[in-house]
């Protein structure tokens, strides 16, 4: 099956959306070829605005567009959208709850060679803590298209976390339906273990389960595309039939999906939890697959950690 990066799917979905909805505008900060908002330039150049290398101004301008009834999709790398422009996102978008869609690409270690300065490992944490901010990370191209269409219909600020690297298609079932805040059961297992993954880690978890199956372990797998508001009902339902929970994210284990899951479990259904993710360190240069391996995110490393956890 063809592998497609979520940023590629984003560009296509946004261009199609812009053609359907005249209120949609695309904003970028000199990365249109990388974030793929240049797809909008091809079909609706008058609604693509480049702000140059000035992310703070771009987010402020996005707030202004939203004030006047537009639906701005503002894109840059996740590190800049969530880090450099944090105050603008918090005070000019989050606090007034404006209808701004921040679609940030190049999140996580799969950025690869650019190294730690460009690998956002804390963006989920930074965005999740802003009141009223919806935070979404699609797992594949199909989900990305669904996310873009859904958030255009939703009124309020949204942060979407997209990746640079090509990922496998997961949500290929004809029954697949995306709904903001509703997790997706990817695999019904038979063991008292539930894996809860987001983004690229859904494919890694799927692969890990194939290996674990050979060893007689058959965990459930849930894709949590919406980190906030999180699907408490689904998480609790699977926790109730599990003794072990494994959270998986291409993000720091502090403040992201693992934290969000444990916040639900601590209140409603306490369980032992393994936090798979980047262990409170910065990334580095390398190929995406090498970094996934080194930082414990690749499927084989997931298997190792799960087996150790279940001992």
């Amino acid at each position: 099956m063809a592998k497609i990066a979520t940023r590629e799917a984003y560009g296509k979905a946004l261009a199609a959306l812009a053609l359907r909805n005249p209120d949609v505008v695309a904003l970028d900060a000199d990365l249109a070829a990388s974030t793929k908002t240049n797809e909008v330039k091809k079909v609706a150049p008058e609604r693509h605005f480049d702000f140059g290398i000035a992310e703070a101004n771009m987010i402020g301008a996005a707030a202004g567009f939203a004030c006047n009834g537009k639906i701005p999709f503002a894109s840059t790398f996740a590190i800049f959208a969530s880090g450099r422009a944090y105050d603008q996102v918090r005070n000019s978008v989050g606090y007034p709850h404006l209808n701004v869609k921040i679609c940030a690409t190049h999140a996580g270690v799969t950025v690869g060679e650019d190294g730690a300065t460009h690998q956002a490992l804390e963006d989920l944490a930074l965005m999740r803590v802003i009141p009223g901010m919806t935070v979404i990370q699609p797992a594949d191209a199909i989900e990305t298209e669904a996310v873009i269409n859904a958030i255009a219909e939703y009124e309020g600020p949204v942060y979407v976390r997209l990746g640079r690297a090509a990922v496998e298609e997961i949500n290929t079932s004809p029954d697949y339906k995306f709904e903001i805040g509703k997790g997706v059961v990817i695999h019904e297992g038979t063991s008292p273990v539930t894996m809860i993954a987001t983004g690229v880690m859904v494919q890694e978890a799927q692969k890990a389960i194939e290996t674990l199956n050979e060893q007689g372990i058959n965990p459930n797998l849930i894709n949590i595309h919406t980190i906030k508001p999180i699907d408490e009902e689904l998480i609790v339902r699977y926790a109730e039939k599990s003794d072990y929970i494994v959270s998986l994210e291409e993000h720091s284990v502090i403040g992201g999906l693992g934290s969000a899951v444990s916040e639900v479990l601590a209140r409603k259904c306490p369980r032992k939890q393994l936090f798979i993710g980047v262990q409170d360190v910065f990334g580095e240069s390398g190929k995406a697959n090498q970094l996934m391996e080194k930082y414990g995110l690749a499927a084989d490393r997931v298997v190792e950690q799960v087996l150790e956890f279940l001992k």
Binding site: V25, E46, R47, F49, A56, N57, M58, I59, G60, A61, A62, A63, G64, F65, A66, C67, N68, G69, K70, P72, D87, Q88, N91, S92
Partner: peptide, 15 residues
């Protein structure tokens, strides 16, 4: 931050 917001509002009005 306000001048940037004004830029966005003005661009929307132009559009």
């Amino acid at each position: 931050q306000g001048l940037s917001v004004g830029v966005g509002m003005s661009l929307a009005n132009k559009l």
